[in-house]
Amino acid sequence: MSPDIIFAGVVNGLMAGGIYVLVATGLTLIYGVLHIINFAHGSLLMLAMYAVFFLFRPPLGLDPYLALPLVTAGAFLMGYVLYRGVIGRLSHGRDENILLITLGLSIVADNVALFLFTGDTQTIGVAYAGNYISLGPALVPLPKLISFGASMLICALLGLFMSQTDMGKAIRAVAKERQGARLVGIDVENIFAVSYGIGIACLGAAACLLMPFFYVSPSSGHVFVLIAFTTVVLGGMGSFGGALAGGLIIGVVESLAGLQFGEQLGQLGIPLVFILILLLRPTGLFGRQ
């Protein structure tokens, strides 16, 4: 491989990684606080992508980037209500039940989408989709550059929120020591619901950033699930900085492995990184021991 191609491959990988970071941040937050693996993650991402699609269509014609605050807020609300109404209520506080419930929710969400929107693939055609920026030998489509920048910005804001606000501190307290948090008067159930909501809100933002260059169909959310798991594990389950670094590393590894070994076998890079990290350093690169 020539240096030019390697450079372009790294750039492509970073751009892809930006989205992985967002999807994984939601997952890692939910894991960190609730200690559950959210199997409904892909399906909820898909629902958010449909929201972006319908907002873009006439009569509203809302640009996906302008829709971002709206979809993110809507996703937060959806996550909050889902936790309060279904997951928290029916799980009886047991991890394995939460897992099954998120699995059931995922089946329901996929098929509601299939029923309402049919299985047809939908895309949105924004005017700037064909614009691209030259970064040396790499050509980066504008929407991917935007999604990368926005994703980094959102992560920074989330980090500020977690470290500076009372709510953020309460979430971290619950994540660290649940019983203790309860004892000092934190409404733990509320924190669970808020955390789940924020996790899903990340998906809302990811959906807005994805739609200009991806597509939505009832199964399109699952495309990002294994990669998000890998990112979370690589970064250390529950670690924000980990999700950020993990997503970018995974993006680049996937990209370079694909170039070197072919797209098919290159995909092996993802589960391999996943397995190796778990076996060699199960707390991830940035997780606490």
Binding site: L100, V108, L114, F115
Partner: peptide, 20 residues
Amino acid sequence: QPLALIVYGVILVIIVGYLP
């Protein structure tokens, strides 16, 4: 047909919720 799987998913959630 998707309605069938919606009902299936709901039943799954209900079983878990009420038969923990």
